Computed example of a mutant assay.
Amino acid sequence: MTVHPLATPLSLPARPELTGGRPLGVLLLHGFSGSPASMKPWAHALAEKGYAVEVPRLPGHGTRWQDLNRVAWTDWYAEAERALDRLLASTDAVVVGALSMGGSVALRLAEERGADVAGIVLVNPFVSSTRRELKALPLLKLVVPSMKGVINDIKKPGQDEVGYPRLPLKGLAAVTDLWRAVVPDLPKVTQPLLYFRSSIDHVIDDSSSRTVLGAVSSRDVEERILTESYHVATIDNDAPRIFEESAEFVARVTAT
Rank of each mutant, 00 (worst) to 15 (best):
Ala215Tyr: 02
Thr190Asn: 11
Gly60Gln: 00
Gly149Ala: 05
Ala181Glu: 15
Pro56Leu: 04
Leu28Glu: 11
Thr74Ser: 11
Val26Pro: 01
Pro184His: 11
Asp85Thr: 10
His4Pro: 05
Ser90Ala: 15
Ile200Tyr: 08
Leu10Cys: 09
Thr130Ile: 04
Ile154Pro: 02
Gly62Ile: 06
Glu54Met: 01
Ala136Thr: 08
Arg64Ser: 15
Glu79His: 02
Lys135Ser: 10
Leu122Arg: 02
Ala174Val: 07
Leu18His: 09
Leu29Thr: 11
Pro16Lys: 04
Val95Asp: 14
Lys148Val: 15
Tyr164Gln: 09
Ala247His: 01
Arg15Trp: 03
Ser128Thr: 08
Pro36Val: 09
Phe32Gln: 08
Lys148Ala: 15
Arg131Leu: 07
Ala251Ile: 06
Glu112Gln: 14
Leu122Trp: 00
Pro240Ile: 07
Phe196Asn: 06
Asp206Tyr: 01
Val250Ala: 15
Ala78Ser: 14
Leu87Cys: 12
Gly21Tyr: 03
Val183Pro: 06
Glu54Pro: 00
Leu107Pro: 08
Ser199Asn: 13
Thr234Tyr: 01
Val221Trp: 00
Arg57Tyr: 04
Asp177Lys: 04
Phe126Trp: 10
Ala78Ile: 06
Ala251Asp: 14
Lys40Tyr: 02
Asn124Ala: 07
Ser246Phe: 04
Glu248Phe: 04
Phe243Lys: 02
Asp201Glu: 09
Lys170Ser: 10
Val221Arg: 01
Arg108Ala: 15
His44Asn: 03
Arg241Glu: 13
Glu161Lys: 00
Leu10Glu: 13
Val144Phe: 10
Ile200Leu: 14
Glu133Trp: 03
Asn152His: 00
Ala247Trp: 00
Ser246Thr: 13
Ala239Ser: 12
Pro41Asp: 15
Glu17Met: 04
Ser199Pro: 07
Met1Pro: 05
Glu79Ile: 08
Asp177Tyr: 01
Lys170Ile: 09
Pro36Leu: 10
Val55Asn: 04
Arg180Pro: 10
Pro168Gln: 04
Ser198Asp: 03
Leu84Thr: 09
Leu12Lys: 02
Glu112Thr: 14
Asn124Phe: 02
Ala118Gly: 10
Ala173Gly: 15
Arg166Met: 11
Trp76Pro: 05
Ala110Phe: 06
His61Trp: 00
Ser35Leu: 03
Lys155Met: 13
Glu48Asn: 01
Gly163Cys: 05
Glu245Cys: 12
